[in-house]
């Protein structure tokens, strides 16, 4: 493997998979937090209380289910498709180590 020895290790160029993955991780956690806030606030905001609420249906489902779960679900799915296909970087993940270095004796293959 090609190796270098920089004067200050901290100045070595960061691994692009690590750098890109870190950035993508923060975005994913942010989306997760936003979705949580939307789902719980809308669902419980519109869904409670059960006893006094008048039955309001959209496409046969309670209104709070459509606005609090189905719509965020569709939005999150569209985001995931965009994120996966358009935003996430295509990184070189490297090559595989040979199994010979991992298994002891040779000549006993199945």
């Amino acid at each position: 493997m090609n190796t270098t020895k920089p004067d200050n290790p901290k100045l070595a160029a960061p691994d692009p998979v690590w750098k890109n993955g870190l950035r993508e991780m923060w975005i994913i956690l942010g989306v997760c937090a936003v979705t949580l806030a939307v789902v719980t606030s809308v669902s419980y905001g519109l869904g409670l209380p059960a006893e006094t609420g008048e039955l309001q249906l959209i496409m046969g489902m309670p209104r709070w289910v459509v606005l609090g779960v189905l719509v965020p679900w569709i939005a999150a799915t569209i985001f995931a498709v965009w994120f996966g296909l358009c935003y996430m970087t295509d990184d070189d993940l490297g090559s595989e180590l040979e199994e010979e270095s991992l298994v002891g004796e040779e000549g006993h293959d199945v």
Binding site: D15, V17, W18, N20, G21, E24, M25, I28, L29, V31, C32, T35, V39, T40, S43, Y44, V65, G68, V69, L70, P72, W73, A76, T77, F79, A80, F83, G84, M88, D91, L93, G94
Partner: peptide, 25 residues
């Protein structure tokens, strides 16, 4: 149960995107 399962809205992007490339690398 629609609320109970709603974490699946982001479950895939979290499970695969959070460290999928890193762990493979």
């Amino acid at each position: 149960l629609a609320i109970w399962i709603s974490g699946y809205t982001v479950a895939v992007i979290v499970a695969m995107g959070l460290f999928g490339k890193r762990i493979n690398q």
